[in-house]
Design a protein around this nucleic acid. Structure first.
Lengths: 212, 212
DNA sequence: TAGATTGTTAATCGATTAACAATC
DNA sequence: TAGATTGTTAATCGATTAACAATC
């Protein structure tokens, strides 16, 4: 029941809905109206209904939404009920933090490999996944066909690795560097995590307050 | 020359401008037009001029923008030329990755303290900053008046710590958990870093492609 | 001066909110 | 059936783009 292209704003709100519905499940809530959910998430009921109706009608007039059903529908929309093979490149502080904190299986992925160039890191096992040398990337990708790569690399290293991966058919990236993959590879699927930008906007807002 | 409230979308684009202007400096470019910058950043010249003109006129008709001047103006807008005291709470994998990878001084902050509850971590020195026990947080804040806190905590721990900090007068947060600080503390200044959400939207877009 | 490019106003586009008929 | 709440259309609001006069 997909109607045309879905706005990026809508897509990026889905994980938040998914999380809140999980909270509701934990609290034993089985049924919720768009109004109740809106109050809880600080949104409008209209927006919630519009968002869900981009993907189809998951509610029932006069009743609202069944929490379990709705959460499962969103999981399906996000592809969380499937599992795509993913690799992680750059096993430094950030790479390690990601591997140790992210439940890949619950996010639609399986981590099938990790890569680094440092000999001291290669061979280590992090969360049951061994770190391979970056020189074995080509062979590994041809054999295992990862669908996505998590790039935990310095800015300068990100472009050549992205190029290499795209040549190998891997074109979806979770990018932790400030290098803009999309500009050089417009067909790539990219999600950026720029926590330094978050600090800068925080700084802005602290001083903004000051200036009032 | 501030005109009314500036949209959150504009504010969140400023760090990106700042980064690209830094790249231009590195390349020795001293002058750029909105058109040239737009081509480079994949934006429109109109949007760039509108964005900058939220804060005042930094260009010159017939010439364009001086790269150094413009970058300095943006640094000032973002408060990067000042330095606010900040603390980091939760010295786990994420906390360590943040401390080791972020140049706080370049982002408008000085890291003045780190806190954890684990005895094995307390006393460690990371990037010249000693880790203090969380029980000393109140005293430390009253003495040192941090302006912001970087919360690298599990979801369940984030709410009570946010409450404690707000009671101590700290109300700006860079939040790495999926707990929604803003809902309970609407006056807080919050920037979220949810890299798990990034994975989920990546999953969505991978399957979306599949469905075409 | 002529050419270039800004700052800014006007037009368009898209996203959010409001309203309400459909219906459980 | 009456009440509640959805799905969806229409109205509003805000953001982006286009246009152009101002001016360096």
């Amino acid at each position: 029941m997909l109607k045309g292209a879905i706005s990026s704003l809508v897509i990026h709100r889905m994980p938040r809905y998914y999380r809140f519905l999980g909270d509701l499940q934990d609290e034993g809530v089985t049924r919720i109206s768009s109004k109740q959910l809106a109050d809880r998430m600080n949104l409008t009921a209209s927006q919630i209904r519009q968002d869900f109706n981009c993907f189809g009608g998951f509610g029932q007039q006069g009743y609202g939404y069944n929490v379990d059903v709705l959460r499962e529908e969103i999981a399906h929309i996000l592809g969380l009920d499937r599992s795509m093979p993913a690799i992680l490149i750059g096993v430094g502080n950030i790479g390690r933090a990601v591997v140790k904190n992210v439940n890949f299986e619950a996010k639609g992925f399986t981590l099938i490999g990790m890569f680094d160039e440092k000999e001291s890191v290669v061979g280590q096992v992090v969360k049951n996944t061994p770190v391979r040398h970056i020189s074995t990337l080509d062979e590994f990708c041809r054999e295992n066909k990862p669908a996505a790569a998590i790039l935990c690399l310095p800015k300068a290293a990100t472009k050549p690795i992205a190029q290499q991966l795209i040549n190998l058919g891997v074109n979806a990236f979770l990018n932790f560097s400030s290098y803009d993959i999309y500009l050089d590879f417009p067909d790539a699927i990219v999600e950026n995590v720029h926590f330094e930008d978050g600090l800068m906007t925080l700084s802005y807002r602290l001083h903004e307050k000051e200036n009032n």
